[in-house]
Design a protein around this nucleic acid. Structure first.
Lengths: 343, 343
DNA sequence: CTGTTAGCGCTTTCAG
DNA sequence: CTGAAAGCGCTAACAG
């Protein structure tokens, strides 16, 4: 591997001149610039990332913290990863992936102290998040996909849960539904202050109240069986229920089976809308699912760009960007049934 | 951030002694070792990854090359990413993710020349793969998830497609099926020499021949509609067809609809087995899918460990590890129907 | 068992 | 507009 010194000699200039030519840090006469780049080309020179990072104290590497949620990772997480990685590359940054078993601040500290990365993108944010606390304390650059209780002075993006759930409730109301249930993540996650679980439920109840509807909510584990049980219990609680809004893809098959087991058809007798879901999942189901699709790639791109701008010293202010899910009406939602077989 | 020099002063030893104590590169008396670690603790010292990398010429960073296949990324890819990242961490390596639009060797060269990573894990391997060519030429350490035409002197892992398809064919034969179709990836991918597409089709035809069955194959785009069409065309070609083995999850809903549209039931009138699939997808479908599940996490772990061993100088030989998919019988495969409605 | 020292390849003052 | 030189924080000879 040729070094900068080699290029300098080859071009008949000083080493520092080569550096300046590459970084554009100070004016270089067109002629020497030409010579330098010609030399670089000829020698097949490429700057060494580690040396550059060490000298400049900027590695041009950022990290995406990918915590393995107990409910398992899905396509949304994949899109986060891909979005972040692509965006980083578009801005001449590298992306390293830190997948941690738990949301452990000590481990995070370990990683950061190594001086490998210039900044971090956090996801799976909770209302009270120890990682956020830590990063603020030591003043380490970061952005979040998600929100915590106090977001002051933190660049972050998130799904606009309020708008998302509102649009979905209005979609169902327009179809004539008046008794609607919201199937949330687990109680455990809710209690732990997991943002989506907390916020969506609150906004659901607000929307229900605002539109004068009957609404009920329920927590649910992340598997078909739990979805099956949940439907039956919800119907026990409110026999007039005609629509469910669910936030967990994994439960959907169970929900459908529970409904069909009663001799009901979707969407003729019962409507189902999945939120924070994806087109790929929606099209896997029969009937295809009406969904509010998570803008995962977009959120990843935005959060990564925010971080990079922060690092590059543009962006003095802090911003919050909320993106709603997009409602895509497919076959699982339809007009509220006039009447329906008792069981 | 304290440096090694700070630690040395604080412990009253030479800088190099600290280095040796940390790396265990040479014997240190227990007493000074204690003092050094105490000093490190007290100062909150953490070695600087960039400096260490620059001096030692080993960054302890590896890259996973994640090409965005035209057929779209799925859960398998996510597992690759997570598996690689976890394994890297378990061995004190960092993982950077390079997601490239195309399998472009030039871009790859760019990345490597930066001297950021010590080695690379390649996926989406084709029979003739320019990236492999390049890496071999410049003697850059790498391993593959997949195989190409000439795998000599390359550590690699792959799905055992032969065994996988054989087990599935035998499963169907045991159920009495004699007319079986294999639904492959696209012709385009097959022609491009994409390993799974090429190998599985070959092994399918071998298994069919070995068991004296009637088999047919067909290419198929990666969406439900294409699956729908494919089924109808296959049945036109062989009206006695009673089972399909499919290698693409995305087509499954279409396949099911096509079968059900004929008034047939799965598995009573027709059997369906998805290979190189996942439990998560299998359970999304109704009826749940009989699948041969891709050992994605395992492959990622193995390939990453191979790379690290290679880098750490253990492992003088080169190895190939083939892992079969695990057949999980669920509800979509059953006994061959005695007779069946004509249409 | 420990210390001294020459780099690793680059950025960035400080001097022209 | 260009050069010379002092580091960045660490590893790994070399020398006891």
């Amino acid at each position: 591997m040729p070094t900068m010194q080699d290029v300098a000699r080859h071009a008949g200039v000083a080493l520092s001149t080569v550096s300046y030519a590459i970084n554009g840090t100070r004016p270089i006469s067109e002629e020497t610039r030409q010579r330098i780049f010609a030399a670089m080309e000829e020698l097949g020179y490429h700057p060494n990332a580690l040396a550059r990072g060490l000298a400049s104290k900027r590695s041009r590497i950022i990290a995406l913290l990918l915590p393995t949620a107990k409910r398992g990772l899905g396509l949304t997480e994949l899109e986060f990863v891909i979005g972040a990685s692509r965006t980083a590359r578009d801005h001449n940054y590298h992306l390293v992936l830190w997948s941690t078993e738990i949301r452990d601040p000590d481990e995070l500290r370990q990683f950061m102290q190594q001086g490998l990365v210039d900044g971090v993108v956090l996801m799976e944010i909770h209302e009270q998040d120890a990682r956020v606390q830590l990063l603020k304390e030591i003043n380490f650059p970061f952005t979040m996909i998600g929100r915590c209780a106090d977001n002051s002075h933190i660049n972050h993006v998130d799904i606009n849960f309020g708008q998302t759930v509102q649009v979905v409730v209005e979609h169902l109301q327009a179809l004539g539904h008046t008794h609607i249930a919201f199937l949330n993540h687990t109680q455990e996650e809710f209690m732990a202050g997991y943002g989506p679980a907390v916020r969506t439920q609150r906004h659901f109840l607000e929307a229900i109240a605002a539109h004068n509807l009957h609404g009920l909510t329920r927590f649910c584990e992340s598997n078909p069986e739990a979805g099956y049980t949940a439907v039956n219990e919800l119907l026990l609680e409110d026999p007039e229920l005609t629509a469910i809004i669910v936030m967990n893809d994994q439960t959907v098959p169970g929900i459908m089976r529970a409904i069909q087991n009663r001799g009901w058809r979707i969407p003729d007798d019962f409507s189902l809308v999945a939120i924070v879901s994806s087109a790929q999942v929606a099209q896997m189901m029969t009937p295809t699912l009406t969904t509010a699709e998570a803008p995962a790639y977009e959120l990843a791109r935005l959060s990564t760009e925010m971080l990079i701008q922060q690092l590059d010293g543009q962006k003095k202010d802090f911003s919050e960007v909320l993106v709603p899910c997009e409602l895509v009406v497919r076959q699982s939602s339809g007009a509220c049934p006039k009447e329906r077989a008792a069981r």
